[in-house]
Simulated assay, not measured.
Amino acid sequence: MSSTAIQIAKVLGARVVTTVGGPEKVARVRELGADVAIDRRTADFTEHGPYDVILDVIGGDYLERNIRSLATDGRLVVIGLQNGLDGRLDLADLVFKRLSVHGTTLRTRSKEQKAAIVAQVREQVWPMIENGSVRLLVEDRLPMEEASEAHRRMEAGGHTGKILLVND
């Protein structure tokens, strides 16, 4: 779940289908504007497709299901690899449905590219935050000394907002 991505997509007029882990998170993303919220522990997101765009933070074995779920001319954007680096890709699906697969990360970009992205966010996204149509969710603020606790919480996956490390 990306709470910010859900909200931005809604502001831009998209129909948003998202997967989350657990009924509490289903309720939370519905509050943020998701049209369909699927608990990945009990349901299969492929049943709700086809999708024009899939933003994938999971990777790994989700690749095959993502490709199968895309509509003709659909786009898959992989931004995370939480479930591993390897996935199966049926090239026939890719070719016959005219699909596009993109992968991206900030980590490997140059300072100039990162600065350009920040400028675009400032121009296109920040006004949505300023006018309240997109809210940044903060689950908790912890002192730097509790960084290991912050990591433990993130790995446990029960949070629905950002966990911030702060200097007091």
Rank of each mutant, 00 (worst) to 15 (best):
M1V: 12
S2N: 06
S2L: 03
A5N: 00
I6V: 13
I6F: 09
I6N: 09
Q7K: 04
A9G: 07
K10V: 13
V11D: 08
R15G: 09
V17H: 05
V17D: 02
V17Y: 11
V20E: 00
A27C: 03
R28W: 10
R28L: 05
L32K: 09
L32G: 10
L32F: 12
G33E: 13
A34L: 04
D35C: 13
D35R: 14
D35H: 15
A37V: 13
F45R: 03
T46R: 15
G49P: 15
G49V: 14
V53E: 12
I54S: 05
L55D: 01
L55A: 04
D56R: 01
D61M: 07
Y62G: 05
Y62N: 14
R65T: 04
S69A: 14
T72E: 08
D73L: 09
D73W: 08
R75N: 03
R75K: 11
V77G: 00
V77C: 06
V77Y: 01
V78I: 15
G80Q: 05
L81G: 11
Q82C: 00
N83T: 05
G84E: 09
L85S: 10
L85G: 02
G87N: 11
R88I: 11
R88G: 04
R88E: 14
D90V: 10
D90W: 04
L91P: 06
D93E: 15
D93P: 07
L94F: 12
V95P: 00
K97N: 15
K97I: 09
L99T: 11
V101K: 07
H102N: 02
H102S: 02
G103Q: 12
L106Q: 07
R107Q: 12
R109D: 09
R109H: 13
S110L: 12
Q113P: 05
Q113H: 12
A115I: 11
V121T: 10
E123A: 14
E123S: 09
P127R: 06
P127L: 07
I129H: 13
E130L: 08
G132I: 06
G132K: 11
S133H: 00
L136I: 12
L137G: 06
E139G: 04
R141Y: 04
E146Q: 15
R153Y: 02
E155C: 01
A156T: 02
H159M: 02
T160P: 04
T160S: 13
